[in-house]
């Protein structure tokens, strides 16, 4: 009868965990297995699809003061080309003379193509409940159009090379009251925070696993989150000040991580706890 009823996802987690919290190391290994099984079960029916659908509509709608659709936006593979575009981002855009990741490029197009002011376009970069973010919906759809495409970020342009190098330095940059850097958690194999596995983003395998599974629907938040959000929230937990959306550093770090993931098939929007 169960399968005829929507099983509450958080409830599902509680049910899986409940009997396992009983005893010791055995329980711990099993808990990790159960978390993996829980994720696999969720993959079918990933609510990210709801964001993808809204994003596709947003992409095609005539919007903004200029009443133009984002189909006039060039994500790097030509005006309006979405298929495979994310697997080559970040990249250098001559029209802006800048390296841009997806969200930065979208912001650029909202301003130049659709005529939005920066303030209007960035009013809500991360959604919360009924206050939804256009960036999250657009990113969900655009990235879904790169699912299965092999990551191929190029450092050929000197500005991309420079972004990569800055991103690498910033990855190891320790600061704040806790002395944390990205590398505190993400520079060694087989480490965990509590029971959460941490990808080693300095190695190919870890970078591929980490980077190709964002954006993701976070079950614990009931929201779809983009890579900009991932960086933003990592820095919050690092006790750094607030990372600016579409900032140079966010693009540099994204370049560093995306390039390290080259060669892997992109596999998002994913679903995470």
């Amino acid at each position: 009868m169960n399968r005829y009823l929507g099983i509450g996802k958080n409830l599902g987690l509680a049910l899986l965990f409940g009997p396992l919290l009983a005893a010791g190391a055995w329980a711990q290994n099993n808990t990790l297995d159960e978390i993996a099984r829980y994720r696999a079960q969720l993959q079918d029916g990933n609510p990210a699809e709801l964001w993808e659908a809204r994003g596709e509509d947003l992409w095609k709608q005539k919007r903004g003061p200029k009443q133009v659709s984002l189909e006039q936006c060039d994500l790097g593979k030509g005006r309006g080309v979405v298929k495979g575009a994310y697997a080559e981002l970040p990249r250098y855009f001559a029209d802006a003379d800048r390296v841009m990741d997806l969200e930065t490029r979208l912001l650029h197009c909202m301003m130049t193509v659709q005529g939005f002011s920066k303030a209007d376009a960035t009013r809500r970069v991360f959604g919360s409940g009924s206050n939804r973010s256009d960036f999250e919906a657009l990113a969900a759809w655009i990235t879904s159009e790169s699912r299965g495409v092999v990551m191929k970020v190029s450092l050929n342009h000197p500005k991309v090379q420079r972004a990569y190098e800055l991103g690498e330095k910033a990855f190891y940059f320790r600061g704040g009251p806790h002395d944390f850097s990205c590398s505190t958690c993400h520079a060694e194999d087989n480490k965990r925070i509590r029971l959460q596995d941490l990808p080693n983003l300095t190695q190919k395998k870890g970078a591929q696993l980490g980077y190709t599974t964002w954006p993701a629907y976070r079950v614990s938040q009931g929201e779809l989150r983009t890579f900009q959000w991932r960086l933003y929230d990592c820095f919050r937990q690092q006790r750094f000040p607030e990372l600016e959306f579409a900032s140079e550093l966010s693009i540099a770090l994204t370049t560093f991580l995306a390039y390290n993931a080259n060669g892997a098939a992109f596999n998002a929007p994913a679903i995470k706890r």
Partner: peptide
């Protein structure tokens, strides 16, 4: 309440409550 109909005939009726998660997924 959730209902599903096929050719005018109800093939599923479900009574849900607050224990079902945000953005629910239903398979039948």
């Amino acid at each position: 309440n959730v209902t599903a109909t096929h050719q005018g005939k109800t093939v599923l009726t479900a009574l849900w409550g607050p224990a079902v998660a945000k953005n629910p997924y239903l398979e039948f």
